[in-house]
Simulated scan of single mutants.
Amino acid sequence: MKRVIGIGGIFFKCQDPEKIREWYKTHLGFDVNQYGAKFEWKQEGDSTNKGYTLWSPFAEKTKYFEPSSKDFMINYRVENLEALVEELKKEGVTVLDNIESYDYGKFVHILDIEGNKIELWEAKD
């Protein structure tokens, strides 16, 4: 079974997400929206199938990264999230919540052995 197939996003805390987005837009050319910037790419083995990686600044006081105390969180793209979560549970990995489904995919959060919160995402590309 495949597990992680790519990086879905990089999320980080900052003092002023709006100013950070504008700075990256002005100085590095990021095409930003209210969530950050989307970097599109084509999937290996099938150049007709596009995917994307999200770059997203969060407010410094966000609780979204909890229970981790870190200033960042990485979102990993996966295939077959349900099967992966079952395997992770068998392996003793801390699964923080239930799988949630949205128009753009399914999500669940886990902790690594140092308490870093990780977001797993099965995309609907």
Rank of each mutant, 00 (worst) to 15 (best):
D16V: 02
Q43G: 08
F72C: 09
N75L: 14
E60M: 11
E91R: 11
K2S: 10
D46Y: 06
K38R: 11
P57L: 09
E44K: 06
S68I: 05
K25L: 06
I5P: 03
E82N: 11
F11S: 01
A83G: 08
E86T: 13
L120V: 08
D103C: 05
E82I: 01
K117R: 15
Q15I: 01
I110S: 04
K124N: 10
R77D: 09
Q43D: 08
G115N: 14
V95W: 07
R77Y: 03
Y24G: 02
L81T: 02
Y35M: 06
Y102E: 11
Q15A: 11
S69K: 10
Q43T: 12
E79M: 01
H109R: 15
I7Q: 00
Y52T: 04
G105I: 13
E114I: 11
D125I: 00
K70L: 13
K90F: 01
W41D: 06
Y104K: 11
N116D: 13
K2A: 08
V32E: 04
H109T: 12
F107V: 15
P67I: 08
K117L: 14
T48I: 03
W23C: 01
Y102S: 14
E66C: 07
W55D: 09
E40P: 09
L81M: 07
L88P: 11
L54K: 08
E82G: 05
I118D: 06
E60I: 03
F12W: 08
S101L: 06
V95T: 12
G8L: 00
A123M: 13
I10D: 00
K2H: 09
E82A: 09
K42Y: 15
N75H: 06
Y76I: 03
F12P: 00
K117C: 12
I20Q: 04
S56Y: 11
E44W: 09
E79L: 00
N75G: 05
S101D: 14
E22I: 07
I20R: 03
V95H: 07
L120R: 07
K13V: 00
K13A: 02
Q34L: 03
C14P: 01
Y24C: 02
A83S: 08
G36K: 03
L54H: 12
I99M: 11
G115A: 12
R21G: 01
Q43M: 14
N49T: 09
W55M: 15
F107M: 13
C14G: 02
I99P: 08
Y35F: 13
G6N: 02
Y102A: 12
Y52D: 12
N80W: 00
P57V: 07
L54I: 14
K89C: 05
V32Y: 00
L54P: 10
Y24L: 06
I10V: 08
K90V: 04
E100M: 13
M1F: 04
K89I: 12
C14Y: 00
